[in-house]
């Protein structure tokens, strides 16, 4: 009797499950094809703003579009959404492209002998490349470009190291103290 009930109920339950799966996958396909359409627009050099629920890859495409056009600040506004939604692979490439845009600015400033403008850009480029390597150590282009910008404006690690140690010591003391009131924002 138990088996008989199973035999008579199985086909409709199977059909229902398959229909639910069809609905879910169909909806997903619809979403992906919409994203692909937006991406095609961007690749065709049209200034399209991605929707709020865009995927990480689409946001990276938008950032790439902005970075190639030297609109770094706008691209930087996407950073939290990209790190939240994209894989580490894509996040690393986003940071790498930010670094490249900064490096291009710095090189242009150096070639125009405006060293004061170049120094902060180099510093930001280094941070971006390091961020890229933290997300994906296998991104060799980021290593190479980090090496290039490191030599543009050389750090003085010995000096910095000394500073860091003197600064780090009291900081560590404070953070280890238990029950330190943090206060409301």
């Amino acid at each position: 009797m138990r088996l008989g009930l199973f035999k008579s109920l199985l086909p409709p339950v199977l059909l229902l499950a398959a229909l639910v799966a069809l609905g879910v996958t169909g909806w997903r396909l619809y979403g992906v094809s919409k994203e692909a359409a937006v991406q095609r627009e961007m690749v065709a050099n049209r200034d399209v703003t991605p929707p709020d629920d865009a995927s990480g890859v689409l946001l990276f495409q938008r950032a790439h579009y902005l970075l190639v056009r030297d609109r770094i600040d706008e691209a930087q506004g996407l950073v939290t959404r990209i790190t939240d939604r994209a894989s580490r692979h894509v996040t690393a490439r986003f940071h790498y492209d930010v670094g490249n845009a900064r490096a291009r600015r710095a090189i242009a400033a150096i070639e125009a002998t405006k060293i004061d403008l170049a120094i902060p850009e180099v510093r930001l480029a280094k941070e971006a490349y390091k961020e890229a390597l933290r997300a994906d150590p296998d991104l060799w282009d980021a290593r190479y470009n980090l090496d290039v910008v490191m030599r543009l404006v050389r750090d003085f690690p010995e000096v910095e190291r000394g500073e860091e140690e003197t600064q780090a010591q009291p900081k560590k003391l404070w953070t280890d103290l238990p029950g330190l009131p943090r206060g409301l924002p």
Binding site: L22, V32, S33, A36, H64, N145
Partner: peptide, 24 residues
């Protein structure tokens, strides 16, 4: 100053979603 070129975003592929929809 020669930098390595920018990373190009991967193209969004419909293939996995299409396959899943077809299977279901």
């Amino acid at each position: 100053y020669d930098l390595r070129p920018d990373a190009v975003p991967p193209r969004i592929s419909l293939r996995p979603a299409q396959t899943a929809a077809l299977w279901s």
